[in-house]
């Protein structure tokens, strides 16, 4: 395989508070290959969005990167000054956020926002930028882009706005698109269209995607590989089919079983007892052990790293033996 496009090594995000420093993302490492779609899934508070914002260096103070490296195309970007980072955001990394109404400026037309982005990152005349903007709009499936380009965001429906946001993200031909819950605010019939569009356009532009979501269905539809996060750590990472169909980590397994199915009937849903620990009270050892049906002594004492678990990697001591044998 070719060199990874994005490498994240031991990334730590922390929040200093009066009662000590809270670690919200704890030594997260993963790679994204060029053109790959990596899904990052987890429940609220798992640290998936913080991982994303840390990569593009948009953490809200007092949150800060407490350690680790982020390497984009061989170049370290986590320690760049804000001015340098601004040139990377939008140009090499495009962003799509959850709520299309808040990510578009209500006071400017769609065209003004698109051409601004295009001209910030590419040397184009006003006329050429406008043509490019119209191209982008038609690419994301906006009907009659020549006239719609002069409309304001409020004149678009939710799904259409998210299409515009995708057009904005792709405006400067980025190598990576960071999509944070891109379909969560949308209805299911619109969601299906946006997922398909995001996947198609990113593939056409050759952009890799880091797709952050809590929705396993969206991941199953879109991602090539998936990383499952729990309490600030990646607990399992592997090819999407393996993780969904054949999860190795007890948390992933429980999570998958707790999703009601459209095709199977069940008297009861499997449930994971309890809830995710708060940042102030992350248990020792494996953070999942108090809820884990298979926890044993070592889980309470020692924290597992990602271990090879056949087809995926799981941070679970259940797979420690295999490692010792090989």
């Amino acid at each position: 395989m070719s060199d990874p496009l994005l490498q994240v090594r031991d990334l730590v995000v922390e929040f200093p508070t009066r009662r000590g420093t809270l670690t919200a993302v704890d030594k997260v490492s993963f790679d994204i290959a060029p053109g790959e779609v990596l899904g990052v899934v987890g429940e609220s508070g798992a640290g998936k969005s913080l991982t994303g914002t840390a990569i593009i260096n948009l953490l809200e103070p007092p949150g800060r990167i407490g350690g680790g490296e982020v390497i984009l195309q061989g170049e370290r970007i986590d320690n760049l000054p804000q001015e340098e980072m601004r040139k990377i955001r939008g140009k090499r990394i495009g962003m799509v956020f959850q709520d299309p109404l808040t990510s578009l400026n209500p006071l400017y037309t769609i065209g003004e926002q698109l051409t601004e982005t295009i001209q910030t990152h590419m040397k184009l005349t006003d006329a050429a930028a406008r043509i490019r903007a119209i191209e982008l709009l038609s690419e994301v499936g906006i009907p009659a882009p020549e006239s719609r380009i002069d409309a304001y965001p409020h004149q678009f429906s939710g799904g259409m706005r998210q299409r515009v946001v995708i057009a904005l993200a792709l405006a400067a031909n980025p190598v990576l698109v960071l999509a944070d819950e891109p379909t969560t605010a949308l209805d299911v019939s619109v969601q299906a269209q946006i997922i398909a569009l995001l996947k198609k356009t990113c593939a056409e532009h050759g952009a890799a995607v880091m797709l952050i979501t809590h929705d396993m269905g969206v991941i199953a539809e879109t991602a090539d590989r998936v990383a499952v996060m729990y309490a600030g750590r990646i607990v399992e990472i592997g090819p999407v089919r393996e993780v969904i169909k054949n999860a190795k980590h007890p948390y992933t397994d429980g999570l998958m079983a707790s999703i009601p199915s459209l095709t199977h009937e069940a008297e009861r849903l499997a449930q994971i007892e309890g809830s995710m620990p708060r940042l102030t009270a992350i248990p020792d050892g494996c953070a999942f052990h108090p809820r884990c049906p298979q926890a044993f002594d070592r889980c309470r004492r020692e924290r597992p790293e990602l271990l090879d678990a056949d087809t995926t990697q799981a941070a679970c001591w259940l797979y420690a033996k295999e490692e010792a044998v090989t």
Binding site: G158, G159, D187, G217, R241, T263
Partner: peptide, 24 residues
């Protein structure tokens, strides 16, 4: 039928689905 087809296929069964068109 359209609503059912729009739900992401978590079972990855590859069932045939008609793409959804339009918005409410």
């Amino acid at each position: 039928r359209m609503l059912l087809d729009a739900v992401p296929d978590i079972d990855m069964s590859g069932r045939a689905r008609t793409p959804v068109k339009g918005e409410v």
